Simulated scan of single mutants.
Amino acid sequence: MAVLWDRDVASTGYVDKMIWCAVIALERCSDEEIWGKLEWKEPVLEVPKSCRIIRALAATL
């Protein structure tokens, strides 16, 4: 699973923000539990503060 979020960039005087991405491996442990393990997280793109993440897409394999 990939998760995206943004954070303001202090070094730019908060006029930019950084888009971050985390990849989480999911594992079904039982019929009622799903566990996740963080594989990595990194900033992936610096954008103007006016940019927004407005859509999400989910896929099942």
Score class of each variant (00 low, 15 high):
Ile53Leu: 15
Ala56Trp: 05
Cys29Gly: 10
Thr12Ser: 15
Ala2Thr: 14
Asp16Ile: 02
Val15Gln: 13
Leu4Ile: 09
Val44Glu: 08
Lys17Leu: 04
Trp40Gln: 03
Glu42Gln: 03
Ile54Arg: 06
Glu27Trp: 00
Leu57Ala: 12
Leu38His: 01
Glu32Trp: 10
Lys37Ser: 10
Thr60Trp: 10
Cys29Phe: 03
Leu61Asp: 11
Glu39Ile: 00
Leu4Val: 08
Val9Phe: 08
Val47Pro: 01
Glu46Thr: 14
Asp31Tyr: 07
Asp8Gln: 11
Cys29Ala: 10
Lys41Glu: 07
Lys41Thr: 00
Val15Pro: 03
Thr60Arg: 12
Lys41Asn: 02
Val23Glu: 13
Val47Trp: 05
Asp31Met: 03
Met18Val: 14
Asp16Gln: 14
Asp16Gly: 00
Gly36Cys: 04
Cys51Thr: 11
Lys49Thr: 00
Trp35Ser: 10
Arg7Asn: 15
Ala56Arg: 11
Asp31Thr: 05
Asp31Phe: 01
Leu61Gly: 09
Cys51Gly: 01
Glu46Val: 14
Leu61Val: 10
Trp40Arg: 05
Ala56Tyr: 07
Lys49Leu: 12
Arg55Glu: 14
Pro43Glu: 15
Cys29Thr: 12
Pro48Val: 01
Arg55Ala: 05
Thr12Asp: 07
Lys17His: 08
Pro43Met: 07
Arg28Lys: 12
Ala59Thr: 09
Leu45Lys: 06
Val23His: 14
Leu38Gln: 00
Pro43Phe: 03
Leu4Thr: 10
Ala58Asn: 09
Asp16Lys: 15
Ser11Trp: 14
Ser11Ile: 05
Ile54Ala: 07
Lys17Val: 03
Leu4Gly: 01
Ile24Pro: 00
Glu27Gln: 10
Leu4Phe: 15
Gly36Asp: 06
Glu42Asp: 01
Glu39Leu: 09
Trp20Ser: 08
Arg7Pro: 02
Asp31Gly: 11
Gly36Gln: 06
Ala25Asp: 06
Ile19Ala: 08
Trp20Val: 02
Trp40Asp: 01
Leu57Tyr: 03
Ala10Val: 12
Trp20Pro: 04
Trp40Cys: 03
Asp16Pro: 02
Asp31Glu: 08
Ala22Phe: 09
Trp35Ile: 15
Ile53Phe: 10
Lys37Gly: 03
Gly13Asn: 12
Cys51Met: 12
Leu38Gly: 03
Trp20Phe: 12
Lys37Tyr: 08
Val44Tyr: 03
Ile34Asp: 01
Leu26Asp: 00
Leu45Gly: 01
Glu46Ser: 07
Ala58Gln: 00
Asp6Tyr: 04
Asp16Arg: 13
Arg7Val: 15
Pro48His: 03
Thr60Glu: 10
Ile54Gln: 05
Val3Pro: 05
Thr60Cys: 05
Trp35Cys: 13
Ala59Cys: 11
Trp5Tyr: 07
Trp40Thr: 00
Ile19Met: 09
Ala56Phe: 01
Ile34His: 02
Leu45Pro: 01
Ile34Arg: 07
Val47Phe: 02
Asp6Pro: 04
Arg7Ile: 15
Ile24Asn: 01
Ser50Cys: 07
Tyr14Glu: 07
Leu45Ser: 04
Val3His: 12
Cys29Ile: 09
Ile53Trp: 09
Ile24Asp: 01
